[in-house]
Write a protein that binds this DNA or RNA. Sequence first.
DNA 1: CTAATCTCTACAGTGACTGTAGGTTCAAGA
DNA 2: TCTTGAACCTACAGTCACTGTAGAGATTAG
Lengths: 143, 143
Amino acid sequence: MNISIGTLATRTGSKVQTIRYYEQLGLMPEPDRTYGGQRRYEQAAIKRLSFIRHARALGFSLDQIRNLLDLADDPARDCASADSIAREHLAAVKAKIAALNSLKRELTRMVECCDGTVTAHCRVIETLANHDLCASTRHETVT
Amino acid sequence: MNISIGTLATRTGSKVQTIRYYEQLGLMPEPDRTYGGQRRYEQAAIKRLSFIRHARALGFSLDQIRNLLDLADDPARDCASADSIAREHLAAVKAKIAALNSLKRELTRMVECCDGTVTAHCRVIETLANHDLCASTRHETVT
DNA sequence: CTAATCTCTACAGTGACTGTAGGTTCAAGA
DNA sequence: TCTTGAACCTACAGTCACTGTAGAGATTAG
């Protein structure tokens, strides 16, 4: 208990700045300070930060995480809300996978027709120049 | 020919600001102007912008796209370079799909144990609180 | 000619951090 | 106890790829 911000960072796989950033956003509560003004965290902070980092790794936005944390903090927490957040997110993830799969198909096609040897025709650039391709993902940017 | 920025935007499914942004970055060349100072584009601009938008939809970064455009602009263009950019990107896409699939499995598990009914136990929050879960995607954020 | 629409520049904001500068505090070894 | 070096502090700028805003000027259809 009473660990420094650096220790908290390594314990949770985050960066020091990220923790301060979360504090600034109100996702992490303000911890006690030493006389010199340095942050000292208790065990609970590791749990909370792990929760946040894990949820982030799963692709939840900080806003969604804030909702989940509010639900978790509420003693009479509403499971249905948490469930619907997760459900919503699952749908988004499924959509993203579908988009990436069609993208994979197209990239594979681009790459396969060259298969390592330099040809007079550059398929990659030609494929990208053809703006009728991949119409399904045209207006949705996959990052 | 000689179309306005707004027309170019609708023709290519982009926004006016985005086009000006690309011009600022040097991805789109500076077009001619009317006496009043408004941009007027030629047919070639539609092609180039479509190329950019399409590549963006496929998840290429603007930096990668700049490389591809340079290759395309070069009369003695090097197909191997374009190919390796595409290949590299394909590998990244495959990795992202794998991460999203494991995420989908976990989200499905979270959602399925509640299946619509409110229970005393909130699985979603519990699952996220358990920071040992999903160790494989822990340090990589999927957006 | 007028009114509506479009365009202009310049700048601020988004999300989720990351990096930097310049200074202060802490903990361990001599 | 003193010193030294790592860790910490605040505050702010930068990243990416845009998006939005304000306030002014240009264009076009009726």
